[in-house]
């Protein structure tokens, strides 16, 4: 490779590093600055770090509650998906039964269904079931919307389980559920981990469902809280930045800590 080629390549890599990180850095900067020097001064970190914005947002603007709500919703959706999708993935990967192709195609079609296109009917159904302004009214539809992706991914993961492993256990007379729990689950643990992380990420980021389902302030998650903060306190930039940081920092940390697992999940459906 010539020196010039290498230089151009490094330049491209650098430009995209800046594209990715500068907006994140700006929010961080705005969040730790006092109001007085928010728009003045250089774009370097000021010292000492000012945590006043976080304290104000956390305690007075209700972000402690929003945060807890995001945790509750995202964890519930993740558990629900982890309890259901792997079973279906196992059936599609390792079992034969009438109607298999049609049922799989049914899930496959769901991969592309936009949430806004079902909201018109879903909203009425939730209302009729008394689930508007109720956590269940977000958790169940959210898990359902993530189900096609999850089942699809689990099928891919389960295909890597050797058939002999399952067949040998059947010969020994073990029940299918027992085989699934004691033989299959231990083998696909990394895949389950990946699924859990990705579902958690998507559930935490969800905006439309909680926006239309929750009316009570104390039920709303961070995404809805941050968006409404922009309207209510339009000029409290330090506060909004702190709120934004609270809304995404856990995801960034989680991703950086579990990168390998995330990437395995993201590529599971794509490469095969």
């Amino acid at each position: 490779m010539t020196k010039k080629t290498r230089l151009i390549q490094n330049l491209i890599l650098l430009v995209f590093v800046l594209y990715a990180l500068v907006p994140v850095y700006l929010v961080f900067l705005a969040a730790i600055r006092s109001e007085a020097d928010l728009f003045s001064g250089p774009l370097t970190l000021s010292w000492p770090i000012n945590f006043a914005n976080f304290g104000r947002i956390w305690n007075e603007a209700g972000f402690a509650t929003y945060f807890m709500n995001s945790v509750i919703t995202a964890v519930s959706v993740t558990i629900l998906v982890l309890l259901t999708a792997p079973l279906a993935g196992f059936a599609f990967a390792k079992l034969r039964f009438p109607g298999k192709e049609i049922l799989f195609a049914l899930f496959l079609a769901g991969l592309v269904v936009p949430a806004p296109s079902v909201i018109v009917a879903l909203y009425g159904n939730l209302q009729a079931a008394g689930l508007i302004d109720n956590r269940i009214g977000v958790i169940l539809p959210q898990a359902a919307l993530l189900m096609p992706f999850s089942v699809f991914m689990m099928r891919t993961v389960m295909q890597d389980v050797p058939d002999e492993l399952v067949e040998a256990a059947v010969m020994d007379g073990a029940g299918l559920l027992k085989i699934f729990l004691t033989i299959v689950v231990p083998v696909v643990k990394p895949g389950l981990m990946s699924l859990g992380l990705i579902v958690f990420l998507f559930a935490w980021q969800e905006y439309l469902l909680p926006l239309v389902v929750f009316q009570t302030e104390t039920l709303k998650p961070l995404t809805v809280g941050a968006a409404s903060l922009q309207g209510r306190y339009g000029v409290d930039y330090g506060g909004i930045a702190a709120a934004g940081l609270i809304a995404f920092a856990p995801l960034v940390v989680l991703f950086l800590a579990m990168q390998r697992s995330f990437v395995r999940g993201l590529t599971a459906g794509a490469v095969k």
């Binding site: 259901t84 999708a85 899930f107």
Partner: peptide, 16 residues
């Protein structure tokens, strides 16, 4: 094995 995920999916995505 399919029932739980299929039920959720049909009720909250298929039906709407």
């Amino acid at each position: 094995f399919l029932a739980p995920s299929l039920a959720l999916y049909l009720l909250f995505v298929g039906l709407p």
